[in-house]
């Protein structure tokens, strides 16, 4: 699924329509099965949609809590299906604790795999980042409240076509881009300022900036 506002709206719109359709079917007495109450239907569809949504976005660490809630809501039905009707399969505390541990565990594994040059997150203060132009796709520049200056090294090896994700909250980010590159942007700016000088330079070395700015300031300078 593309992470655009349109596809997100379409997805959640379809989920809500599906929920309404299931509730109508249930209201007409067309049973989905014993134990499928309206609350279970609404919660079930929304939680499954939540899980699918995060799976599409490869946010595996976010699926464990909706899975836990789904299990707790449908626990009596699951118990019946496995032939242990009337029993608590698992304590709610155990389920939630497992969800928490799984979330933290997957987060740690993902964090260790995306650390270093692949994810550059700064908070408060002044800092400088040097991004390897051989692989700027692997980088995310995040800034909260501080100032960060970004330079590209090995610029002569850049082939073009990479996307750099820039996320700024109340901070200031200055990107020094080699003068023979062309910059295109996809900017979402909330009460901030994104300044990119207009130029007539046409180059194969195109850098695409995906900018998300909240009350911050982002400047692109061509050296």
């Amino acid at each position: 699924m593309k992470k655009t506002g349109l596809s997100r709206s379409v997805f959640w719109g379809m989920v809500l329509i599906l929920t309404a359709a299931l509730l109508i079917l249930n209201g007409f007495g067309i049973s989905l099965g014993e134990g499928f109450t309206p609350v279970r239907i609404i919660a079930g569809v929304l939680l499954v949609a939540w899980i699918l949504y995060d799976l599409f976005r490869v946010k595996i660490e976010r699926i464990f809590f909706p899975l836990a809630f789904l299990f707790l809501i449908y626990e009596p039905l699951i118990a019946r299906w496995v032939g242990r009707e009337g029993e608590d399969l698992l304590s709610a505390w155990i389920v939630l604790l497992c969800a928490l541990l799984l979330t933290i565990g997957v987060n740690l594994i993902k964090g260790s795999r995306t650390s270093g040059k692949e994810k550059n997150s700064k908070h408060i203060g002044n800092s400088t980042l040097y991004l390897d132009a051989n692989d700027p796709d692997a980088c995310v520049v995040k800034e909260n409240l501080g100032n960060v200056t970004v330079y590209f090294v090995n610029a002569e090896n850049y082939r073009g076509g990479a996307t750099l994700h820039v996320q700024n909250n109340l901070g200031e980010i200055t990107l020094h881009v080699p003068s023979d590159w062309t910059v295109t942007t996809d900017a979402s700016d909330n009460l901030g300022q994104v300044r990119i000088p207009e130029r007539d330079v046409v180059s194969d070395k195109v850098l695409h900036l995906k900018i998300h700015d909240n009350l911050g300031r982002i400047r692109v300078l061509f050296d």
Binding site: Y130, Y151, F152, V153, A155, S179, D223
Partner: peptide, 8 residues
């Protein structure tokens, strides 16, 4: 890193 006006 060493900076000149146009390079790193």
């Amino acid at each position: 890193w060493v900076h000149t006006a146009t390079d790193v």
